[in-house]
Amino acid sequence: MRVSELSRSSGVPVATIKYYLREGLLHRGASTSPNQARYDESHLRRLRLIRALVEVGGLPIATVKDVLGAVDDPATGMHEVLGRTVYAITGTGGDEAGAFADAAEADVRVMTAHAGWHVSERAPALAGARSVLARLHELGQAPGDDTLRLWAEAADRAAEGDLRAIAHGDDREGAAETALIGTVLGDALLAALRRIAQESHSAARFRPECARADGETMDSSTIG
């Protein structure tokens, strides 16, 4: 297909495709004349991954190049490819609230030990978790060990589901795209599901009732 057809099929403007070509994010097509080239499905797959990295992941071009370099390097194992992808979109949070850093680190150890996780110390998510936990301590809302273990179990099951989606594929670009989109949109979905579950559990435990003088009860939804 010509570049105009590649643009229509991918939804990426021609000018943007040419920019990706100049920056080396997209490989050159097969030359058919001095000013013409033909593109194929491999270009569509790469554009889909680039769009996911830029539009969903919000990554700068330099970071996109790093991720694509790992995808294209056959010497880079799939674990590292996925690591480069997920690390690139993972924030580390703010500072660790000074005096509460040790408490936050202890909380992280409780969760990693309970779940049996083995993770690099340079994982940005570790720093992010410590930052959030330190803030909870600072605000007087430190979770107990039972809560930490429940959170770890929930996260572990979610991560297992994420990896099942890519564990059996041979397509490195597809795996990176799935990891990226699954992480970004999966985070949003898990947050929404958590709030749904919170409402359900809250209703079961704390549904407010107002005692009437005649001894009847009234659900909060009927209170004017």
Rank of each mutant, 00 (worst) to 15 (best):
residue 82 L to Q: 01
residue 85 T to E: 02
residue 127 A to I: 00
residue 65 K to M: 10
residue 36 Q to P: 01
residue 47 L to E: 04
residue 116 G to W: 04
residue 38 R to D: 12
residue 43 H to M: 07
residue 116 G to I: 04
residue 130 R to W: 01
residue 58 G to A: 05
residue 100 F to R: 04
residue 31 S to E: 11
residue 135 R to Y: 00
residue 46 R to E: 06
residue 37 A to I: 02
residue 90 T to D: 00
residue 27 H to N: 08
residue 109 R to A: 14
residue 124 P to V: 03
residue 124 P to D: 07
residue 128 G to M: 08
residue 83 G to C: 10
residue 115 A to F: 05
residue 91 G to P: 07
residue 79 H to M: 12
residue 77 G to L: 07
residue 34 P to R: 09
residue 124 P to Y: 05
residue 79 H to F: 03
residue 130 R to T: 14
residue 67 V to G: 13
residue 103 A to V: 04
residue 70 A to E: 07
residue 78 M to T: 15
residue 98 G to V: 06
residue 123 A to G: 12
residue 29 G to D: 01
residue 73 D to K: 09
residue 97 A to S: 12
residue 106 A to F: 00
residue 94 G to W: 05
residue 131 S to P: 12
residue 75 A to W: 01
residue 33 S to T: 03
residue 89 I to F: 02
residue 113 A to G: 13
residue 74 P to Y: 09
residue 83 G to A: 14
residue 50 I to Y: 05
residue 80 E to F: 06
residue 32 T to F: 05
residue 44 L to I: 10
residue 89 I to Y: 02
residue 39 Y to V: 11
residue 58 G to S: 02
residue 129 A to H: 03
residue 89 I to M: 11
residue 57 G to I: 04
residue 76 T to N: 09
residue 114 H to L: 04
residue 94 G to F: 03
residue 118 H to P: 00
residue 60 P to S: 11
residue 37 A to C: 05
residue 93 G to E: 00
residue 64 V to R: 10
residue 91 G to A: 07
residue 72 D to P: 05
residue 134 A to P: 08
residue 118 H to D: 14
residue 86 V to D: 01
residue 106 A to C: 02
residue 118 H to V: 15
residue 103 A to S: 10
residue 108 V to I: 11
residue 50 I to P: 13
residue 119 V to W: 14
residue 88 A to G: 08
residue 61 I to L: 15
residue 103 A to W: 00
residue 45 R to V: 06
residue 89 I to P: 05
residue 81 V to G: 06
residue 76 T to G: 09
residue 120 S to E: 13
residue 117 W to R: 04
residue 133 L to P: 09
residue 96 E to H: 15
residue 135 R to H: 00
residue 33 S to F: 01
residue 54 V to W: 00
residue 48 R to Y: 00
residue 116 G to N: 12
residue 23 E to N: 07
residue 32 T to C: 06
residue 30 A to F: 10
residue 101 A to K: 14
residue 122 R to D: 15
residue 107 D to K: 02
residue 96 E to V: 08
residue 54 V to A: 15
residue 64 V to Y: 09
residue 40 D to M: 01
residue 32 T to I: 10
residue 66 D to T: 15
residue 27 H to G: 11
residue 58 G to F: 01
residue 101 A to P: 09
residue 58 G to L: 04
residue 54 V to T: 13
residue 88 A to H: 04
residue 55 E to R: 14
residue 102 D to T: 14
residue 41 E to W: 02
residue 57 G to E: 00
residue 57 G to F: 03
residue 106 A to P: 08
residue 51 R to D: 08
residue 105 E to S: 15
residue 112 T to Y: 04
residue 94 G to I: 02
residue 104 A to H: 05
residue 95 D to N: 15
residue 52 A to I: 02
residue 78 M to S: 15
residue 116 G to A: 13
residue 24 G to C: 13
residue 25 L to S: 09
residue 127 A to L: 13
residue 95 D to L: 12
residue 22 R to T: 09
residue 85 T to R: 03
residue 107 D to L: 03
residue 65 K to G: 15
residue 110 V to K: 03
residue 121 E to W: 03
residue 128 G to W: 00
residue 126 L to K: 10
residue 83 G to R: 15
residue 48 R to S: 14
residue 124 P to N: 10
residue 87 Y to G: 14
residue 122 R to Y: 06
residue 44 L to C: 07
residue 72 D to S: 13
residue 67 V to Q: 02
residue 55 E to F: 00
residue 78 M to D: 14
residue 95 D to H: 14
residue 99 A to E: 14
residue 106 A to L: 03
residue 110 V to G: 03
residue 126 L to P: 13
residue 56 V to C: 07
residue 25 L to N: 10
residue 29 G to K: 05
residue 40 D to H: 15
